[in-house]
């Protein structure tokens, strides 16, 4: 296990290093110095910034300094927010994004699991078709389409919830959460249904039935756990999907989150924020995938042993 974890951590560092280098050289490839295209800085300010970030030095030195700054979590200063520290800007925006992400993940997977279970336990009935239909719709309709429809009907037409902004506490988070949750919901429902159907047709379920276990015991004592453990493996892609979704959903509902800031920065060519957020997202997703893999090993007894002996 320790060997595996070490190996994974080394891979994570290599991956982050590659992303950082990739980002750096892409930025360098852009026409002219990114700083010079920033309109808001006076020549004096520019010189100060250039000196601070070593933009007057040769490329390899810049690269090393860039990497060094990154290790210190220093991504420079924003263009659009007049020299504000990028790391601080990202931290300031993290609250709403994390709240939405976690709410959506919990809500989506919970409902998804319930739908998937119902579909598998009541195979080829109206329940099954209904939940499969919801899953296909959730998988197919992009979150931004769903979010705009939700905003138009629930917010504008029926005036049930705040149309946008992050001002009414929890009620402001309901619509964006639902819009974000639809993806994890669909994925979880489909995944749980497939796993559950397979588990239910396995020999050990037949043996449990032959022991005299009731339908309820079979579903919850035997099948449930075995069907849910593999769900952990899709948590990585689900998190990635949530990040993708948050970019548009935060924009649509005008949520002061990381995603909204990122999209705005893309449209305004605010490179320090783009680089900082890119590194932040990469780090977040890589760590989530790492945790998920470790968790899977701990929860599934089959893998637990295999990891222990090797």
């Amino acid at each position: 296990m320790a060997k595996y974890v070490t190996k994974r951590i080394i891979y994570m560092i290599i991956t982050l290093f590659l992303i950082a280098s990739f980002t750096f050289f892409l930025m360098k490839m852009l026409p002219g110095s990114p700083i010079s295209s920033a309109p808001k800085l006076t020549p004096e300010q520019l010189a100060v910034v250039e000196a601070k970030y070593g933009l007057d030095k040769p490329l390899p030195e810049q690269y090393l300094q860039y990497l060094g700054n990154m290790v210190k979590l220093d991504f420079g200063v924003s263009f659009q927010f007049k020299g504000a520290d990028v790391t601080q800007l990202i931290i300031n925006r993290a609250g709403p994004s994390f709240q939405l992400g976690i709410q959506a993940l919990v809500l989506g997977t919970l409902i998804g699991i319930i739908l998937g279970m119902i579909a598998a336990l009541k195979q080829n009935t109206v329940w099954d078709y209904g939940s499969t239909l919801i899953a296909i719709f959730g998988l197919s309709i992009p979150s931004f389409v769903f979010a705009t429809l939700l905003q138009y009907w629930v917010g504008v037409k029926w005036e049930l919830l705040p149309v946008a902004l992050w001002k009414n506490g929890f009620s402001s988070s309901i619509m964006p959460t639902i819009a974000l949750a639809i993806g994890p919901l669909a994925t979880a429902a489909r995944f749980v249904r497939t796993e559950m159907v397979e588990v239910l047709s396995s020999d050990y379920i037949l043996l449990a039935k032959a022991k005299g276990a009731s339908r309820f015991e079979i579903a919850f004592k035997h099948a449930f756990r075995n069907a849910l453990i593999p769900l952990i493996t899709v948590m990585g892609p689900l998190a990635a999907g949530l990040v993708t979704g948050s970019l548009v959903v935060e924009q649509i509902f005008a949520i002061p989150g990381i995603g909204e800031q990122f999209v705005k920065s893309i449209n305004m060519n605010d490179f320090p924020i783009i680089m900082g957020t890119t590194m932040f997202y990469s780090f977040l997703l890589i760590v989530i995938i790492f945790i998920v893999d470790i968790l899977y090993g701990i929860i599934d007894p089959r893998i637990r042993l295999a990891g222990g002996t090797k």
């Binding site: 992303i19 852009l30 990040v243």
Partner: peptide, 16 residues
């Protein structure tokens, strides 16, 4: 290593 890089990030950076 490539699979570790979130594809959203690559796509956005490339398009910029």
């Amino acid at each position: 290593i490539l699979a570790g890089i979130p594809n959203l990030i690559i796509v956005i950076l490339m398009l910029m």
